[in-house]
């Protein structure tokens, strides 16, 4: 086939340009670590990577949700720990004052302390989370769940939070747990104990010891529930973390450049470019010689 000098130069230029583009592409993949940056590079792999990336982003929202819920349950557990201490002090006072050796004055003093413990209890059960929400209010989180009289004004709702794809976890404990609907009314129990102490009613004080013990058990049971929910949230977070890891690997598999393959491609492209340049130089030399 007849080939002119112009055609030879065109072929040399085209070969060099192609080789240079290949080197640029291989260098880009190696330095950025990304083999598929756009859908047009590889629509299937790009779509796989994009889905993984989007799921990971939604999963990050689930992580925030779990984190907030765990923080609130931790705070609730801390408050209930204090509630338990308050109740145990009340139990201790009741046990002391139920004996015949105590005087009316001592029982009056104890009544006063139990009254103060009751107020402390109301304060604890009206604890608020970092965002100002009442921890034991059920769904009525913007209103203190226990009023000054110790009546529960919150709801019995238990909040669920999103913990994963199509997954929710229970993440609160309503104050209704501490009312008669779920055992004894712990505030009314302390109220009753204080009244009996104030009245120097030894038998009455004796009679309140069982309800106080039941209240302590009730709070312990509530803490167990919180523990179970925290455990469930921990497991959900572990599962979510595993999913996030899997998604990161999937993203990596889909769009990331294999460093070894990219380096090999770069070497091949560089060799091809070197060859193309050498060929172009020889063609130019040949043409110069001819001229």
């Amino acid at each position: 086939m007849r080939v002119t000098e112009r055609r030879l130069m065109e072929l040399a230029t085209t070969a060099t340009t192609r080789a240079r583009d290949a080197v640029a592409s291989a260098t880009g993949a190696l330095s950025s670590g990304v083999a598929v940056g756009r859908a047009s590079d590889d629509p299937v792999r790009w779509a796989q990577g994009k889905v993984a990336q989007a799921r990971a982003a939604v999963s990050a929202g689930h992580a925030r949700s779990i984190d907030v819920a765990r923080g609130q349950l931790d705070q609730a557990d801390g408050a209930l720990d204090s509630v338990g201490e308050v109740l145990r002090r009340a139990q201790e006072l009741g046990t002391q004052m139920a004996t015949g050796v105590m005087s009316a004055t001592e029982r009056a003093g104890a009544a006063e302390e139990v009254g103060q413990l009751r107020q402390t209890l109301i304060g604890l059960l009206d604890s608020r989370a970092g965002d100002g929400e009442y921890l034991f209010a059920g769904a009525g989180g913007d209103v203190a769940p226990f009023d000054a009289a110790g009546a529960y004004v919150g709801t019995a709702d238990v909040r669920a939070v999103v913990s994963g794809e199509a997954l929710t976890q229970l993440a609160s404990l309503p104050g209704a747990t501490f009312t008669a609907a779920n055992g004894v009314d712990i505030l009314a129990t302390l109220d009753g104990l204080a009244t009996s102490l104030a009245a120097d009613d030894q038998a009455g004080v004796q009679g309140w010891l069982d309800p106080v013990a039941a209240a302590i058990d009730q709070v312990a049971g509530a803490r167990t529930t919180i523990g179970v929910r925290l455990e469930a949230l921990d497991q959900a977070e572990q599962a979510r973390g595993g999913l996030a890891l899997g998604l990161a690997e999937e993203l990596d598999r889909a769009v990331a450049a294999d460093p070894i393959a990219a380096a090999s491609r770069l070497t091949q492209a560089a060799t091809a470019l070197e060859g193309a340049r050498a060929a172009a130089a020889r063609i130019v030399a040949l043409l110069n010689q001819g001229g």
Binding site: A57, V58, S59, A60, G61, H62, R64, S65, I66, V68, A69, Q72, A129, D131, E133, V161, V162, A171
Partner: peptide, 10 residues
């Protein structure tokens, strides 16, 4: 949807 999930917790 990440924002809505986070908001649902609080």
């Amino acid at each position: 949807f990440a924002g809505l999930a986070a908001a649902a917790s609080s």
